[in-house]
Design a binder for these strands. Sequence first.
DNA 1: CCCAATAAGTGCAATGACTACGCTTTTGTA
DNA 2: TACAAAAGCGTAGTCATTGCACTTATTGGG
Lengths: 199, 199
Amino acid sequence: MRVTEPTGRRERKKAQTRQSLADAALELFLDRGYDQVGVKDVADAADVSVTTLFKHFSGKEALVFDQDDDLEAELVAAVRERPPGRSIPQALREHLLLKQAQLAIHATDPRFADFTRLVEETPALRDYAHRMWTRHEAALAKAIAETVGAPDDDVSCAALARFALEARSLVLRHADPRRAADEAFALLEHGWAASHPGN
Amino acid sequence: MRVTEPTGRRERKKAQTRQSLADAALELFLDRGYDQVGVKDVADAADVSVTTLFKHFSGKEALVFDQDDDLEAELVAAVRERPPGRSIPQALREHLLLKQAQLAIHATDPRFADFTRLVEETPALRDYAHRMWTRHEAALAKAIAETVGAPDDDVSCAALARFALEARSLVLRHADPRRAADEAFALLEHGWAASHPGN
DNA sequence: CCCAATAAGTGCAATGACTACGCTTTTGTA
DNA sequence: TACAAAAGCGTAGTCATTGCACTTATTGGG
């Protein structure tokens, strides 16, 4: 019995189909623009039926983003397991910048810049990416509240969670994200320190 | 030439049609739920064609919200013409609470509670309402920057604009919006004061 | 090695929001 | 009155997305 990679032919083909779709989609979108490409075009290019496409991806926008499943767990961990002496806003700033840097590793690929531009210039994709993060607001708020010993529905904890997640997209469109993040999070930092000293 | 109300029969009928549509839509949505009603149903109930419906409203969601045109102007004015001694975050908190109170005036109408619930429980409507506000983020950021003499693209001004607008929806889902607003804006207040004392 | 369960993939038809188009009716105005 | 603009209409289309019934391939067991 194989311990690593219990990958039968079935799962391999499935992954392959999925990859074909994602590749075809990205190429077409970059070439013609998101709105100028129909879901039918993508399916044809990947040589599968439209029905199959929707068995692999929940919607047209999802074709562009590979599964970022444990986003929530990482976000919560960034707060819970932050090094001693680092405030929650600082920890969140670091985490968001780190995730962005992880993406930028592919920056060697000249497609990457185009990819980023595609996402930022297409409202449907921008919104989708945004929601990938804000989706976890409640979980983040809860983690923060537990960390500082506040009730689960504490408003300032919810506010910090919301603002930090919003800061991400705010900062991303800036030429120098690091500097922008410093400024945006400085605001949160000071505001947070005022009511939750030492966190 | 009539100065006030240059209202000919034409414009009156137009407004009437629009109103019929809005009324029919609200009644149907409240009765069956937003997703269970098609635009065809609304058009039929108002006794107009679907094409006509879309000449009056930009989309299905817009049927629910009457034109809030000068939202942006009011927002900018709240910052620019705030009474002396009141900080920008405070002014924004007041303005947002005021606008909410203005809506709640209709609270005598028992439909109003249902209306609020409808909007909050229907993702499409919640998002639409949210975007009605966040749409003006750039204008608000610019107004703030000019008020404090910062460059138009100053990050902390943009951040304050974004956070304040987000605070609105954050606070709205709370049982006591006023208290929630106090907490959320306290965070912004202190953070903002740290870098822009006296504003 | 064969069989039955399972899962991937297919094609087709339908829904529901929205648009384009070409047409008729109404209304404001010269 | 005559004409242009505006309001409305119906049809037919696009596009994403879903349900359904069907074929094909893979797998695990007997």
